[in-house]
Design a protein around this nucleic acid. Sequence first.
DNA 1: TTCATTAAGTTGTCAAGACAACTTGTCAAA
DNA 2: TTTGACAAGTTGTCTTGACAACTTAATGAA
Lengths: 245, 245
Amino acid sequence: MSVLNADSRVPLYHQLADVLRERIRAGEYPAGDRIPSEPELSRTFGIGRPTVRQATDLLVRQRCLERRRGSGTFVIHPLDEIDALSLAGTMVSFAKSGLAVTTSIVDPLKRVRVGPDPENPFAGREAWTLQRLSRAEGTPALLEALWFDVGLFAGLDGIPLEGRSLSQLADQHFRLRAESAGQNFRVADCDPDSAVHLELEAGTPILLVKRRVHFPGAPNTVYSELRCRTDELVFSQTLETPRHD
Amino acid sequence: MSVLNADSRVPLYHQLADVLRERIRAGEYPAGDRIPSEPELSRTFGIGRPTVRQATDLLVRQRCLERRRGSGTFVIHPLDEIDALSLAGTMVSFAKSGLAVTTSIVDPLKRVRVGPDPENPFAGREAWTLQRLSRAEGTPALLEALWFDVGLFAGLDGIPLEGRSLSQLADQHFRLRAESAGQNFRVADCDPDSAVHLELEAGTPILLVKRRVHFPGAPNTVYSELRCRTDELVFSQTLETPRHD
DNA sequence: TTCATTAAGTTGTCAAGACAACTTGTCAAA
DNA sequence: TTTGACAAGTTGTCTTGACAACTTAATGAA
């Protein structure tokens, strides 16, 4: 009962990769679990082991699978998967550092008309907005103000946001996956409101990051301002060069 | 006369990839030219064709080679390719802003033994180092200190650096293309030396970026510290999500 | 000359097998 | 119980061989 079509114009290893990717997506091979071994896949699909390896090679390069010699081939944990925002994500980048990070919403989600601001793409329009604070080991480290497009994120007010990655939410609830983002960095004096949350004196220099996130066909769908204390924690990111497989 | 050692712990296809990369770098296979065909490499090196393909696969993925079915495998032209470092590049990101940016070397290239510094991967070792200053519209904006691996950038002291993008140099002279990079951001007080170059008072808060650049098979090959004035110019970047197929 | 055909060469895909290197669990001995 | 040796299973590497799909250049005919 082979699912693969040997006469197809699509190479067998691409077909097998599609099957595996679909099974992973469907939860048939849960994250962290081992998938069937190469000889086993070779037998069940009636193809050679090199072809199986070509297929899993694709998924390994896409960071979907991970090979462990002598042990097996495993489904990568979603956190390590290619998440559009993880490039610049905040919760994610902190989580990887191994620090105990807690995030709480300090200003609940509401619909507002955004005032004039040349850097805020929602200026003069309505948008969802909220503010959240991340603490590392108890110390306030990052205050984040976000604005969302009301059209694309319709019904956002019915979804629990506490403690969730926003990119994960965008993916799961709205099937939106960021395409690109732009951000800039500057040193700014901390305003009084933010100073309270960050437990600083007003006027203390902080790192201010302004970020725009673009989705396919919908640029500037998310805008955020990040205010970071960098006295105890630094703001870090990892960049990977886009792969062309 | 095989150059490859079958008894080595290093896999044959890695050895062959190294040989090919070296020949490309040395100009033996010029950019745009065809390299010997797979059967030919297979014969001359006395190895199987799949092994040859494994080797060229590495270089294709590093965007060093390009396969054309029915025609051959070709050395990629350095210029028309996406610059890996442009993701995090400094001159490049400034240039895109449309501002008149000039970069000058304020501390010439030299070989030094790097002192202890937990964040500098060259600490306790020898490295190339240099310091350069970028001005936007005449105003000092960015002071950059760089450290390079002496092994990978052998002969760096014979190459004119003035006014060139370093990633372009790495690509064209050493056929090195960054794979990934990590950087962190913090607010720091400007040290006296940097203050002179940036035309600030010592102690003024500036943006300090520490960056590590990784090349295929050679992590931490470049380390740099960027000190930015952000009063008139911001430090910006664009992120693209890696595409999959 | 111009165009279509042909042949040679190249990469793309796939098979079957072999051994090496490594991991893990089992089992026996201390 | 703890330790060590062993066996089974898995991925890593490599070989030989084959045919398909495609490109290019040479060849021949109009």
